[in-house]
Design a protein around this nucleic acid. Sequence first.
DNA 1: GCGTTTTTTGAATAAATATTCATAAATTTT
DNA 2: AAAATTTATGAATATTTATTCAAAAAACGC
Lengths: 151, 151
Amino acid sequence: MARSSRQSKILELISTKEIETQEELARELKNANFEITQATISRDIKELGLTKILAPSGKYKYAILGGDQQQVVSNKYINIFRECVISVKPALNLAVVKTIKGMGSSVCSFIDKLNLSELLGATYGDDTVMLIFPTTTYATDAVTTLGQMLM
Amino acid sequence: MARSSRQSKILELISTKEIETQEELARELKNANFEITQATISRDIKELGLTKILAPSGKYKYAILGGDQQQVVSNKYINIFRECVISVKPALNLAVVKTIKGMGSSVCSFIDKLNLSELLGATYGDDTVMLIFPTTTYATDAVTTLGQMLM
DNA sequence: GCGTTTTTTGAATAAATATTCATAAATTTT
DNA sequence: AAAATTTATGAATATTTATTCAAAAAACGC
């Protein structure tokens, strides 16, 4: 459980910040209350298919891999999603996602990447993500899409 | 000059073989008569925007980056091409590319990636690449395309 | 529940990679 | 063409990352 949450957090962190080293990632995770060592991060990074790329700044940073290999890995991401999400429910033009404690932000960051159709905006709390749509129909469609991923 | 040739060779090597470490790359380059140390390879790899990715085999290997950053880098590739190619000429339904000594194979590997229209096949020698087209027209078109890259 | 197997992790370490610093080669300036 | 500047490189080293090996934690069957 801690494992999935941690990996989800890692995905969020690297897409949010420019993480240059695994030690740096360890520090960030510590801030998010994951006590972990560099050894474990090395393993997580391998599992998640992350790589160091040359950022425009000229520095190296961790990023999610593009290309073919990505397919192999994205199942992994969906598994993480599954383990962090408790339920997805519609509420008029909103979709409300309940997550395990502390995973609101990283689940939200994950959902952002899905490019849900007509998603107007998304906000999150500690264990909730709220997705805003123009109509109830789009909201229920999104709930269906996300629900599918949980099965 | 040696620099461009070497980097061109590096591009060829990593797209041909599964190179796991810089030391391994150093050995391969030695075979191709480039006496070079790991330090320089580290620098070349940074310049070329290469990264280690997880190969399907589960091992790490070097690969050319996909994605946005790639644009920044591909100019670099064209520069290398420029420095390795001496001339591009048509001969009936063929295009003949003369390269500096020893660069036939890596220039050929580079050209392969261009997906020239109607290219039927390509062969190379030490300092020559031969491209085969169905008609003289396609051959001269290719010569124009490649010629453009040299300007 | 209790023993057994599998999975996850950390500490220590091995392995790999990036950088520093000095030097040499190439390029430009005058 | 000599001096000055820039660029490329290697040796040594610092830094970073992967792995080994042992231990703890979790999952499983009985």
